[in-house]
């Protein structure tokens, strides 16, 4: 039986992550990762074939900050938001201050004109630092069920 405190902390981190993106508080997003971190959005096909190149890859908190800078100031695109719906969160393993966690998500994309479409579904495969507070992501793999992206991806998933 896992410690209920750990379970609640993990739930809080994953829920906070989705809110932060969906509420357009992208500046808070890099702070949810440890300084040495790994963030990768890829497809199930790439993931299962062991192919390492996905869609977005960050190997440091700085690279996450650069993603936010680019979305805010560099890249041009039509305004839109996501709504994440996260499924049940399962902790596979807790070892040496690190929780290995998985959850499923769907992300609806809401364009500025109100058009809503199912943009992405997939699975989060996380390694979470639970030694300190608040909990932080050491690694977050976003494995998309489909290998197709409609138009572009600029806001992280």
């Amino acid at each position: 039986m896992q410690d209920v405190t750990i379970r609640l902390g993990v739930q809080e981190l994953i829920g906070h992550y989705a809110d932060c993106i969906d509420d357009d508080r992208l500046e808070d997003w890099p702070g949810m990762f440890t300084d040495q971190c790994r963030y990768l959005i890829t497809s199930r096909l790439n993931h299962e074939a062991g192919l390492r190149q996905g869609i977005i890859y960050a190997a440091s908190k700085g690279m996450l900050q650069d993603r936010v800078m680019a979305a805010r100031r560099a890249n041009l695109f039509e305004p839109h938001r996501y709504r994440h719906i996260i499924g049940p969160i399962r902790i596979d393993q807790i070892d040496d201050g690190v929780a290995v966690v998985r959850s499923n998500f769907i992300a609806v994309r809401i364009m500025h004109d109100g058009a809503s479409t199912l943009f992405a579904t997939g699975r989060y495969l996380d390694k979470i630092d639970i030694a300190g507070t608040p909990y932080r992501f050491i690694e977050r793999l976003v494995v998309l069920d489909s290998d197709k992206i409609d138009t572009l991806l600029v806001i992280p998933l």
Partner: peptide, 22 residues
């Protein structure tokens, strides 16, 4: 690793490519 990091420049979320998607 160098190619993977620079990979952020291209593709559907590429810093220098995503505008071409829209």
């Amino acid at each position: 690793e160098r190619r993977l990091r620079q990979g952020n420049l291209i593709g559907s979320a590429g810093y220098i490519a995503l505008e071409d998607g829209c």
